[in-house]
Design a protein around this nucleic acid. Structure first.
Lengths: 256, 256
DNA sequence: GCGCCAAATATTGGCGCCAATTATCTGTAT
DNA sequence: ATACAGATAATTGGCGCCAATATTTGGCGC
């Protein structure tokens, strides 16, 4: 009973009728700190596939309640980022070898199409964004593994954004995440995810509006990534989560 | 739990070394009856975009509890099939005009690639499945609108299945659903979703392994669907009850 | 009659408790 | 020492209750 008069934004209330779900801010669960935290932890490979995501542990780490955690986990399960097993809990999703290959194949399809569309509708703003990203990627510290991973993902997301299709952008985001899981599951130790020189090449070809060349470069780039993973048989992961979540939870509480 | 039991403490308990979640039943929430019910109701256009999905009503309708309904609704919200607004409830998702166009553009990308892959790996089983579906579609009752809609969707899903990529298949399923919502939102009354002759043509071209022809036919087919929708300005969406009562009132006034 | 304001109602959101299930630990026998 | 079995702790799943918010209804003034 504190805000008796929030004063709706538009005085255009011609309809005394009710049913209008529009005109409300669609704050999604994607903006949830827990979801964001787990997502970044996964994309930065700080959470390994198969790791257990206990509800109580996450709740104390993020400083929220268990119900909130459950909502976040079931959302991530719907996006196939975590795997929920009845009465056992939630685990970071571990794709099969076939699924990993399918993810890369899907990325070849989606991202080559994104390159094509991005070139078609490339304008001044898009060129500036692309150049700015290439600057950042050229200048970044290659020894900082987390920054490298973030920049790598951002490049592909930026290309999808330049394509101007929000549905395609969503699909690219999902595929990027699942690629992280696929690579984390099947990578050979010590190798980077992307070859460092691929992104400048692709970016330059996009800026030059060389559609065939850019598409070929992107396809080749994704194939190169795919060839760095190998099927593997059995391995058990060790639980190292407490420290990670403690740190992430502290950062979230601090308001980072 | 932190200090719920100060009586007996055995801190000797080690960290839970979790078993690898393999060899468990992968029963997902997609198999949930509520999710399936809402999904089929939407794809059959029995639930219109913007319709309110009240928890209590759904709970009594499906004969289950409210918590179960909430899980199903949040899952569907993660898949962008329903829209959840805080403190207001869940509604059938209503895409914007731009999103509807993006959905069709994404389908052109994904489904032409699916056609290509399907032709590449077409084998005896695939040919048989395709022929069987074409038989069913040729023989079905065109006046049964729900059956027509189901068969239409099944054709596109079958092509995605023949492509042999599960990730691509998931994406096609999502796009089919969202297409249903886009068409239901922006369709002109009285027109069918798919032109009736398009599927046999595409199927025949796939069976003939005419890759360029099949891709072109699929792209044209999707463009044809897209051209049947129009943006609507006067968004005065009259809700169902007022429409019914308006009609009844008119009839009463006319007939005495 | 029309439009705005306030009480009443309905619906959603969240938290605590307890049952069900799983995983772990301990004890005993081979 | 290993293996099996029972007991016990920990974790997840589900339900009821109650607060918070939105929607509808009723009332008042113009």
């Amino acid at each position: 009973m504190k805000r008796t008069r929030p004063l709706k934004r538009k005085p255009k209330r011609s309809e005394p009728k009710h049913r209008e779900p529009e005109a409300v801010d669609p704050r999604s669960i994607d903006d949830d700190p827990v979801v964001q935290g787990i997502l970044t932890a996964i994309s930065q490979k700080r959470l390994k596939p198969g790791a257990k995501l206990g509800e109580d542990r996450l709740a104390t780490a993020f400083g929220t309640t268990r119900i909130h955690i459950r909502q976040a986990l079931s959302h991530l399960a719907s996006r196939k980022v975590v795997m929920q097993i009845p009465n056992r809990g939630a685990f970071v999703y571990r794709p099969s070898w076939e699924e990993a290959q399918d993810i890369f194949a899907a990325r070849r399809i989606v991202e080559t199409a994104a390159v094509s569309a991005a070139i078609d509708r490339l304008d001044k703003t898009g060129k500036a964004e692309l150049k700015a990203h290439m600057e950042r990627e050229a200048r970044h510290d290659r020894n900082d593994r987390w920054a490298s991973l973030s920049l790598t993902a951002e490049f592909h997301i930026l290309v999808a954004k330049l394509a101007g299709n929000r549905v395609l952008l969503e699909m690219s985001r999902e595929l990027m995440l699942r690629t992280s899981l696929a690579i984390a599951t099947f990578e050979q130790p010590g190798e980077p995810d992307c070859s460092p020189d691929a992104h400048p090449d692709i970016g330059a070809l996009i800026l030059a509006r060389d559609k065939a060349g850019a598409i070929h470069a992107m396809r080749h780039h994704i194939e190169e990534m795919e060839q760095r993973i190998r099927p593997k048989e059995g391995e058990d992961e060790v639980d190292e989560l407490t420290a990670i979540f403690r740190e992430i939870g502290a950062r979230v509480r601090a308001g980072g």
